[in-house]
Simulated scan of single mutants.
Amino acid sequence: MSTTSVYSPLHVARSRFVWVRGLRKHLLFWGDPAAATPGAPLLVLVHGWMDVGASFQFAVDALRTRPGWQDRPIVALDWRGFGQSDASGTDSYWFADYLADLDFILDELSPGEPIDLLGHSMGGNAVMLYAGLRPQRIRRLVNVEGFGMPSAEPEEAPDRFAKWIDELKQPARLKDYDSLEAVAERLKGNNPRLRADFALWLAQHWSHEEGDRRVISADPAHKRPQPLLYRLPEVLGFFRRITAPVLFIEGDQTPYFLLFNGKYDRNQFLERSKAVPDLRLSTVADAGHMVHHDQPEALATLVADFLQSP
């Protein structure tokens, strides 16, 4: 049995469920959205692939120590099929659904006023597209490690569709675990920088009990790749429509580009970023891909300064 203590949140979130497009979506609230003002609007946080909204707890606690942030309303969501949000009920997940879900949720949370929006990884890619889709809804945008994907060529489409169909014929499974401590060890294995007390706290939200096992709180169908190609000209079309100032935050030890075996690198990302009308880049020291876990205080400082600057 582990003797490590579990992280104790300084500011406990309130859970709320809303019905969006026929699915029950889980939201976490710190503060009251009704308290938002034009100068200090609602901040909405969206997580990455195989993560949950509670993942932002450490960064929220750090933000609350900043002047002007003691009561500012913050909301984090669980994407469909993650955390406590309903699964889609289908055998695949489509990126367009994330954008539509976010739009419906903002109709509920802030129908008449722009928000500040932050996304990590997959969520960072989603918020960039959303800010081009609904530029009038975003006051300021923060993208944490949402670098995008290698540009795909049309000739790749048949093989991608064939691979997708072949994987549909195989059951999708996620590994289960015999204890909360085992889940925490899995999280630390994914990210060696993760503090032990953070890992134990996250494990409670990243998994749930089924009988005597702990099961990851995600629909296994998320493991199936989408057959649709990542078309760079379309992505840049979204980028050019962004009107909000954008802060891109990366970890100086990010392993992100290693995923692509030389097919996509940071220089290509920097070239794409020129399509965004107003983008600035900040790098967090001693941080990998999970910046909000590795350096929550440094992330909170960058985010607070950016969102409060004139």
Rank of each mutant, 00 (worst) to 15 (best):
T3W: 15
S5Y: 00
Y7D: 04
V18G: 09
V20P: 10
R24Q: 14
R24P: 01
W30Y: 10
D32Q: 12
G39P: 08
L43Y: 01
G53A: 09
S55Y: 08
Q57T: 03
F58L: 01
V60A: 05
D61S: 03
L63T: 06
G68L: 01
V75L: 03
F82K: 02
D86V: 04
Y93E: 06
W94Y: 14
D97N: 12
L99W: 08
I105T: 07
L106E: 05
L109H: 05
G112H: 14
D116N: 05
L117F: 05
H120T: 01
M128S: 04
L129C: 10
P150N: 10
P150M: 10
A157S: 06
K169V: 00
K175I: 07
S179F: 01
P192I: 02
D197V: 01
Q204V: 00
H205M: 03
W206N: 00
D212Y: 09
I216A: 11
P220V: 13
P220M: 14
P233E: 07
F248D: 02
I249S: 07
E250L: 13
G251M: 11
K263H: 13
R272T: 04
K274C: 14
L279R: 13
V284S: 08
V291R: 10
E297F: 10
A298S: 14
A298I: 09
L299A: 13
F306Y: 11
S309C: 14
